[in-house]
Amino acid sequence: EAEIKAARERAIVPLEARMKQFKDMLLERGVSAFSTWEKELHKIVFDPRYLLLNPKERKQVFDQYVKTR
């Protein structure tokens, strides 16, 4: 159900806005820029903003977040 709702939101909200919300979530959840995606996943997986991006986009935004922190 959450994935269906997220898919609707992905269709409406522009990618750039969704990427910003995802980055904000990473900051708010205290995701370490010195860790790996796999180790940090448990901090963010239950946040509704996690589903704003598809899996490939999530990883790309995380990688970008790590490089710029």
Rank of each mutant, 00 (worst) to 15 (best):
P55E: 11
D24T: 15
K43T: 02
T36W: 03
Y65I: 03
V61F: 03
A11P: 13
I12Q: 07
L51P: 06
P55S: 10
F62S: 01
E1K: 14
A6N: 13
G30A: 08
E1Q: 06
R10G: 12
L26G: 00
E57N: 12
D63G: 11
F22E: 00
F62H: 03
S35L: 02
M25T: 01
M25V: 01
D47S: 01
V45L: 09
E3K: 06
K39V: 06
A11K: 07
D63H: 14
Q64C: 09
Q64G: 09
R29N: 15
F34S: 15
E16I: 13
I44E: 01
E40H: 02
S32D: 12
V66P: 02
E57R: 12
D63Q: 11
M25R: 00
V13F: 08
Q64W: 06
R8E: 08
R69F: 15
P14G: 08
L27C: 09
R49H: 02
A17R: 11
A17M: 07
Q60C: 13
F34N: 14
K67E: 14
L51F: 05
K67C: 09
W37F: 09
K39T: 06
W37A: 03
Y65W: 14
E9H: 03
E40W: 01
I44P: 00
A17L: 08
V31D: 01
R58M: 04
N54D: 06
K43D: 02
F34V: 11
E28T: 05
I12P: 14
G30V: 02
M19I: 10
Q60Y: 13
A33Y: 06
E57F: 06
I12V: 14
L27S: 13
E9R: 07
R69A: 15
Y50Q: 01
Y50G: 01
E38A: 09
R58F: 01
P14V: 04
T36G: 05
K56G: 12
P48K: 12
E9D: 08
R29V: 10
K20F: 01
Q21E: 11
D24M: 07
V45R: 14
A7P: 06
V61L: 06
E57I: 05
R8T: 10
E40P: 00
A33M: 07
K56H: 09
T68W: 06
V13N: 09
Y65Q: 03
T68Q: 13
D24N: 09
P14Y: 05
R10M: 15
E3L: 08
R58C: 03
E57W: 10
A7F: 05
E1F: 06
E3I: 12
L26W: 00
V66S: 11
R29D: 02
Q21R: 14
K20S: 04
A11R: 13
K59S: 11
L26K: 01
K39M: 12
K20A: 04
Q60K: 13
F22M: 00
R8F: 05
F46V: 14
E40I: 09
L53A: 01
E9M: 10
R10C: 08
K5A: 06
F62R: 01
Y65S: 03
V45T: 13
W37N: 01
A7C: 02
A17C: 12
K56Q: 09
L15Y: 08
R49E: 00
V31T: 02
E1H: 03
T68C: 07
A2Y: 04
G30I: 02
S35K: 03
T68N: 14
E28K: 04
R69C: 15
P55N: 14
M19T: 08
A11Y: 08
K23F: 14
K43W: 02
A17N: 06
A11Q: 14
A33S: 14
L15C: 04
L53D: 00
L15M: 08
K5V: 06
A33D: 09
P48H: 14
A6W: 07
K39A: 11
A17Q: 11
Q60S: 13
D63A: 12
L15D: 06
N54C: 05
G30F: 03
V61I: 07
R58H: 03
K59Y: 07
A33N: 06
F62W: 13
P14Q: 06
R58Q: 12
V61H: 03
S35Y: 02
R49G: 02
A17G: 14
K23W: 05
H42M: 04
A7T: 09
A6D: 10
L26N: 00
I44K: 00
V45M: 08
R10Y: 07
R18G: 03
L26E: 00
Q60V: 12
V66K: 05
T36M: 04
K5E: 15
I12D: 08
A6C: 09
E40C: 05
V13S: 10
L51Q: 12
V66E: 05
P48R: 10
L52P: 03
A7H: 11
I4E: 08
V31P: 01
A17Y: 09
T36N: 15
S32E: 13
A7I: 09
K67N: 11
R29S: 10
Y65M: 13
E28H: 06
L51N: 06
F22W: 10
D47T: 00
R18W: 02
H42E: 15
T36Y: 05
A17I: 07
F46A: 15
Q64R: 09
P48I: 04
V66Q: 09
A33F: 07
K5P: 04
A2T: 13
F46K: 15
L51A: 12
P14K: 05
P14R: 06
V61Y: 02
I44A: 06
D24F: 07
L15A: 10
E16A: 10
T36F: 06
P14L: 06
V31R: 01
K43P: 01
L51T: 10
L15I: 05
L41H: 11
R8P: 05
K56D: 11
R18K: 14
D24S: 11
D63K: 13
I44Y: 05
E3D: 14
R8H: 14
L53C: 04
Q60H: 14
R49S: 03
I12W: 07
S35G: 07
D24V: 11
D24Y: 04
Y65C: 04
R18L: 03
V31I: 14
T36L: 05
Y50E: 00
R10L: 13
N54T: 11
A17S: 10
P14W: 02
R69V: 15
S32T: 09
R29W: 02
Q21N: 08
K39W: 03
R69D: 04
I12Y: 08
E1D: 04
D63R: 07
L41N: 15
V31K: 01
D63E: 10
V61S: 09
T68E: 15
A11V: 11
L15R: 10
H42K: 11
P55G: 10
V13M: 11
Q64V: 10
K59I: 04
A7E: 10
R8D: 15
L53M: 03
A11E: 12
E57S: 07
I44R: 00
G30T: 04
Y65H: 05
S32Q: 03
R49K: 03
D24H: 14
I44V: 10
E9I: 05
S35T: 05
R29Q: 14
F34G: 13
L26Y: 01
A7R: 12
K39R: 11
A17K: 12
T68K: 12
A17V: 10
H42L: 04
K39N: 14
E40G: 02
R49W: 00
K39D: 10
E3M: 10
V13W: 05
A7Y: 05
R18F: 02
L52H: 05
